[in-house]
Design a protein around this nucleic acid. Structure first.
Lengths: 169, 169
DNA sequence: TCAAATCGGATCAATTCGCTCCGATTGCCA
DNA sequence: TGGCAATCGGAGCGAATTGATCCGATTTGA
């Protein structure tokens, strides 16, 4: 139940790219790596994947770089996650490309996974890149917009209670 | 963006246990293993984890076994998943027990992860064990529940696997 | 034409996950 | 009352996937 690190980094990278969208239409991997403090090879790999998915257009050569193919408001988290990790599928049953589940005959819960799958994807698709850049923070118990990373390391149990409050029961 | 196999098996196992809840109040790991075609050691490991989480009560010795501590209607998927995988956290930022994210100072998307996190958890918490047992299969398209906000985007592919699971005991 | 800077694919190490084995505990039976 | 058998519980090992790094191909600018 955890997103891969690459997908997490891809979201950060796309958010940084969306901030520079209006300023300089063309930006490169090195700039993004410096800005997001991500390793440059990692950013390069993300650029290839995102380019293959059609979210960005990359041009080679000196002075090259990449740019977003669509405005930030038209790109959501589900697009980015699917570009990195492939189709969103909580279980191997949902995408039956790998039919290695031996218990599917007696598995009565599989049809329900599609529902959960759609709900998860909907939650991701509901957040666009524009919302990430326009509204940096929500005044939640999580330490908010505090850009002081030092205090964030030992913030205590405040954040753990946040997800409990957010969870619908 | 994929659930671990253990969590998937745990849901299948709990569904099988819920079916036998009224018939024989006490059931063992061997029976569940035979019924669900899961490896016996895997079922045993799941029993220990679920017992630690308080979802089932296990008794040792000859004729022992385990039983659900709560009725199936009071157990949802979020409980089972959290029992196996720990707290639901899509990214490492949400549970800052591992503060190994070096870019959190310039990360403007982290507050938004809590929202997505809560949405995912809510989707899981909305499905109870009773719904898995009462309604074995729905050959219909994904049933129009309220929380399928944007599931219609890619919901077509998953429905085809529904009628494959015809043989439900 | 040369050179520099970029993307793209391929390779290697590390972490995590899943499976299996062995020990501890308890109830039943002789 | 002693032994046996069946069960859960935890520890260890192997495998697979993931994540980071390196090198080559390509293209533009001088």
């Amino acid at each position: 139940m955890r997103l891969s690190s690459l997908a997490d980094y891809a979201v950060v990278m796309m958010a940084a790219a969306a901030r520079h969208c209006g300023a300089s239409g063309r930006l490169n991997a090195t700039l993004i790596a410096q800005e997001t403090a991500l390793p440059l090879p990692t950013v390069q790999k993300l650029v290839s994947k995102l380019s293959s998915a059609g979210l960005i257009e990359s041009t080679r050569g000196t002075g090259g770089g990449f740019r977003l193919t669509r405005p930030p408001a038209a790109i959501n988290l589900a697009d980015i996650v699917e570009a990195i990790e492939g189709p969103i599928a909580l279980t191997a049953c949902v995408d039956h490309s790998r039919g290695d589940c031996a218990v599917e005959s007696s598995c009565s819960v599989r049809p329900h996974w599609a529902v959960v799958n759609g709900a998860v994807r909907g939650a991701l698709a509901d957040i666009s890149l524009a919302s990430l850049t326009h509204n940096p923070v929500r005044p939640d118990p999580v330490e908010g917009r505090s850009f002081s990373s030092s205090a964030a390391k030992e913030g205590g149990a405040s954040t753990s209670s946040a997800q409990t409050a957010a969870g619908v029961s």
